[in-house]
């Protein structure tokens, strides 16, 4: 992004400081989204100030930035929204956690979305753990009653695993169902 050059050094410092704040606010986003938002704000500032006489630069710039608003407030909804899009696209845990953090105030919807996402990860992990520790992973019954579904290091005597290798198929099926539910929930939240 091309930096705007002001004749007045005070105006230059004010502009540089504002752009640094915008930079900090969008730093959590993908490189493309960062560039897009920075360029958008930069373009607005340039269009509003480029005809100003040097003696009026500070006043006009201050007025422009005042009307644009504090980047920390103005950019918050956009950053939060773009972060969710990035998280859904990549399903990268880092982006998911950041998206949940940024959207925590958007209601319980994203909280539930985060919980379901954790369930998806948990079921996926169980499929792998079943291959590593098959004796301790599965659907265990004791005396005909449900005992544990998942992994346990402390198996009491008499507990039997009933699913065998079907456990892997079951957790993959559960993972797919919850993934589907999360996609639906995300679409609902997006449409709010």
């Amino acid at each position: 992004m091309k930096r705007i050059i002001f004749n007045n050094p005070t105006a230059q410092r004010i502009y540089d400081d504002y752009i640094s704040r915008v930079n900090r606010c969008v730093s959590i986003l993908s490189a493309d989204d960062q560039r897009e938002l920075l360029m958008e704000f930069n373009s607005h500032i340039y269009e509003a100030t480029h005809n100003a006489a040097p003696e009026n630069e500070v006043d006009i710039l201050m007025d422009t930035l005042d009307k644009l608003g504090a980047p920390e407030i103005v950019l918050q909804p956009t950053v939060a929204h773009k972060k969710v899009q990035q998280a859904v696209r990549s399903f990268n845990p880092k982006h998911v956690v950041e998206a949940i953090y940024l959207n925590i105030f958007n209601g319980v919807g994203y909280f539930i979305w985060g919980l379901i996402y954790l369930l998806v990860l948990a079921f996926g992990s169980l499929a792998i753990i079943k291959l590593i520790a098959p004796e301790h992973t599965g659907f265990f019954l004791k005396d005909g009653h449900y005992f544990v579904f998942g992994y346990t290091s402390d198996l009491p005597s008499g507990a039997t695993e009933v699913l065998g290798n079907w456990f892997i198929i079951t957790v993959i099926a559960l993972m797919s169902i919850f993934y589907f539910l999360n996609t639906l929930l995300f679409r609902l939240l997006k449409g709010k």
Binding site: E40, H44, E47, A48, K67, G69, A70, V74
Partner: peptide, 24 residues
């Protein structure tokens, strides 16, 4: 373009638009 759009809104309406909210 963004800045021009803000000016156009000001010309046609009496609305004081918080310019920063326009981009989101």
């Amino acid at each position: 373009y963004g800045y021009e759009l803000v000016q156009e809104i000001k010309i046609h309406t009496t609305l004081e638009v918080a310019e920063g909210t326009l981009y989101p």
